[in-house]
Design a protein around this nucleic acid. Structure first.
Length: 203
DNA sequence: TTCGTGATAGAG
DNA sequence: TCTATCACGAAG
């Protein structure tokens, strides 16, 4: 089980390091292939920027706590609280299924591949994450935790689906993973490489 | 491309 | 109250 100290790193470091680790959720598990960092301070896209309840959550919980919320009236989002010198969250955006494939597919209406766990809403649905899991500690039970993984190649680009602070390259993906929700943006312009720019559009 | 669906927060 | 917004995804 990944110890609590892991979640005391700054959010960006933590997110990058989480790629390749295994997320264990009951009888299901999968390798983290995509996640995003959100910083408590100086990041307008972070819930703490506009939601008092999020700031209170940070204050009241330890590093490694699950921050779960309901979005767009239908999707649960699973995050991990990062708390140390710099606080924030890591949003889990995609996993590569490892264990409990049948259970995940059942929850997802028989979908498979990228459609099964590629995307934060899909990931949470596949694992059965709901608001009941809000505040759950990832560092006490082997049934709900992260396991260290092999070192993998990680690529960074801009976060997905946000309207503020789009320029920050705080999305981290496992290179060449077919389970990532949206392919690495840098791949589309290989000759120039990825360079974050203000106001850059994704579509 | 369009739209469902609900929690949250801030304004009036 | 009311309105805007939102770390999305399925259907068309």
């Amino acid at each position: 089980m990944i110890p609590r100290e892991f979640f005391t790193q700054p959010p960006v470091e933590c997110a990058r390091a989480l790629v390749g680790c295994e997320l264990v959720w009951g009888r299901c598990s999968g390798l983290v292939v995509e996640c995003e960092a959100y910083a408590e301070h100086g990041d307008p896209a972070c819930h703490t920027f506009s939601r008092p309840s999020a700031r209170e959550f940070v204050a009241r919980h330890r590093a490694g706590a699950a921050y779960v919320y309901f979005n767009y009236g239908m999707h649960w989002m699973l995050n991990v609280l990062v708390k140390g010198d710099a606080n924030g969250f890591v949003l889990l955006r995609a996993i590569e299924p490892r264990r409990g494939l049948a259970a995940m597919m059942k929850r997802r209406g028989g979908r498979s591949g990228r459609e099964l766990t590629g995307g934060p809403g899909r990931l949470a649905a596949a694992l059965g994450v709901t608001g009941r899991d809000h505040g759950r500690d990832f560092c006490v039970s082997p049934g709900r935790c992260f396991l260290a993984g092999d070192r993998v190649e990680v690529v960074a680009d801009a976060r997905i689906g946000i309207s503020r602070a789009k320029e920050l390259p705080w999305r981290f993906s496992m290179a060449d993973s077919p389970f990532v929700s949206v392919p690495w943006l840098g791949k589309r312009k290989p000759s120039r490489g990825y360079q974050p720019r203000l106001g850059q559009k994704r579509e």
